[in-house]
Design a protein around this nucleic acid. Structure first.
Length: 427
RNA sequence: GUGGGCGUAGCUCAGUCGGUUAGAGCGCCGGGUUGUGGUCCCGGAGGUCGCCGGUUCAAAUCCGGUCGUCCACCCCA
């Protein structure tokens, strides 16, 4: 690869059939689940005007845009995420649509950043969104889809967990503690580091970077680290805005329990999500062993459609990438082994049976069977080897004798059983 | 973007203190008496030792740079 005349761009993948099989396996599972929940598939352009991302997605995304100036002097970017495109598409037509809108997509997304395990310059992402429904039922439905997407691939509650939080609740909690409105975003950014940075360092950062007193930093930290909502400070819990928001958040969690997905859900206020536009429930799915990056992230973004000039519609959704998920499946032995499959392989003893072989092959193909044969004249032995290698379940053998009697031999490649048949026996 | 490990056939790797024509397994191609696969046996093709430069009588082996890759940091679709 490194010494190839035309090397691949770093961070991009080739998909020869053996690799493509895993991608197809994942994408097909995603589609099945999305359809099962009544979502409709859509897509948009892989290239968008850069402005679509600059204002709405936050600096984290903008710094990593795979962007350039096109020949028409337009500043463009390969799409780094799907939600802005969705918002734009809906902005143009949502007024005439019945709500809620339930759409999903499987876009290939791009970012310009040095690659690492689970992080390439390109990936395929399952995007599922409910638009036009502000209630927590929509958030629960969305998270259920994400969980089922993983279950469909054979993963269980032993393999992954959904950590859920509510940005609205966190915001209220911070306000009640006396965090100034302007400091909320910075606080969230620092809290996002909890889990991979020592608590003391995070507390220190809250003091130095955001300007909190030691006492406030400690209280803020306690909010994010609370093992459960019940463990929040009593005077915080007594605030009516807090208790109101907690009640509705609990209903969201309880709803997933009713759906039978309780064992997959854990409340964790440390989950804040990097993107700027989230406004309510947010969640991330992780492998239980904690060896990989987040498998999936999502949440509610009620202001985004408005920001891109559309009807002000509440929305909630998630994105799940194929790269980390592929690694998790590999770790758990859930990647199906690549198997060539063919219904029939037609073999001729000598060249004079070729025309009949072609007629049989075409007739079977017309009836929907997959059929192949050697494209060159080869010995019977050779043809049989090829048939085996290509995964034929039945080999049809025609020789001079069969040709004369108007029949051929069907050999079952699993049992080795052979019988004489005519075409009408097979179609 | 910063720091570190690695880079030998399609794949996984071996190559001892620098020393002649660089090896193995798997895979691939061919054959094992022109009507039968998967096992087995035999044979074959395939490598500018990532690339460029340096040290040396001599470099896959030492040094520098570069590209790629992996890991950590940054950050996180």
């Amino acid at each position: 690869m490194a010494n190839s005349v035309f090397p691949r761009l770093p961070g991009f993948r080739d998909f020869p059939p053996e690799e493509f099989a895993l991608r197809a396996h994942i994408c097909e599972a995603w589609r099945r689940v999305a359809h099962r929940y009544g979502f409709l598939e859509y897509d948009g352009p892989p290239l968008e005007p850069i402005e679509l991302y600059v204002q709405k997605s936050g600096d984290e995304i903008v710094n990593q845009l795979y962007s350039f100036t096109d020949k028409g002097d337009r500043e463009v970017s390969l799409r780094p995420e799907m939600t802005p495109s969705l918002a734009r598409i809906l902005g143009a037509r949502s007024r005439g649509m019945s709500k809620p809108i339930r759409w999903f997509s499987l876009p290939q997304l791009f970012r310009y950043e040095r690659q690492q395990r689970g992080r390439l310059k390109e990936h395929f992402q399952w995007n599922v969104d409910v638009v036009g429904e502000a209630g927590l039922a929509a958030d629960a439905e969305i998270l259920a889809v994400a969980i089922d997407g993983l279950r469909e691939l054979g993963l269980t509650s032993e393999d992954f967990v959904a950590r859920v939080s509510d940005r609205g609740l966190v915001q209220i909690l911070l306000e009640v503690l006396g965090v100034p409105e302007g400091a909320v975003a910075g606080t969230l950014a620092i809290a996002d580091k909890l889990g991979r940075t020592p608590e003391a360092a995070v507390q220190e950062k809250l003091v130095t970077d955001v300007g909190f007193s030691d006492d406030l930093a400690k209280q803020v930290l306690a909010v994010f680290l609370a093992p459960s909502l019940e463990d929040l400070d009593a005077h915080v819990l007594s605030d009516s805005r807090v208790s109101e928001r907690i009640t509705s958040f609990r209903e969201f969690v309880a709803r997933l329990g009713t759906m039978g997905l309780g064992e997959y859900v854990e409340v964790d206020l440390k989950i804040v999500r990097g993107l700027a536009y989230y406004t309510g429930v947010v969640f991330e799915l992780f492998d239980r062993k904690g060896e990989l990056r987040a498998i999936c992230g999502g949440g509610r973004y009620d202001r985004l459609l408005e920001l891109v000039g559309g009807e002000p519609l509440p929305a909630t959704g998630f994105g799940m990438g194929d790269v980390v998920l592929g690694e998790l499946l590999a770790d758990r032995g859930l990647v199906p082994t690549f198997q060539r499959e063919l219904d029939y392989f037609v073999v001729v003893v000598s060249a004079q049976e070729r025309p009949e072989a072609l007629r049989i092959a075409q007739a079977l193909r017309e009836s929907g069977k997959s059929v192949a044969y050697s494209l060159r004249d080869q010995s019977l032995l050779k043809q049989m080897k090829v048939a085996g290698r290509e995964g034929a379940s039945v080999v049809l053998i025609i020789g001079p004798g069969e040709l004369e009697r108007g029949c051929f031999i069907a050999r079952d490649m699993t049992s080795g059983e052979e019988r004489e048949v005519v075409l009408s026996d097979l179609v």
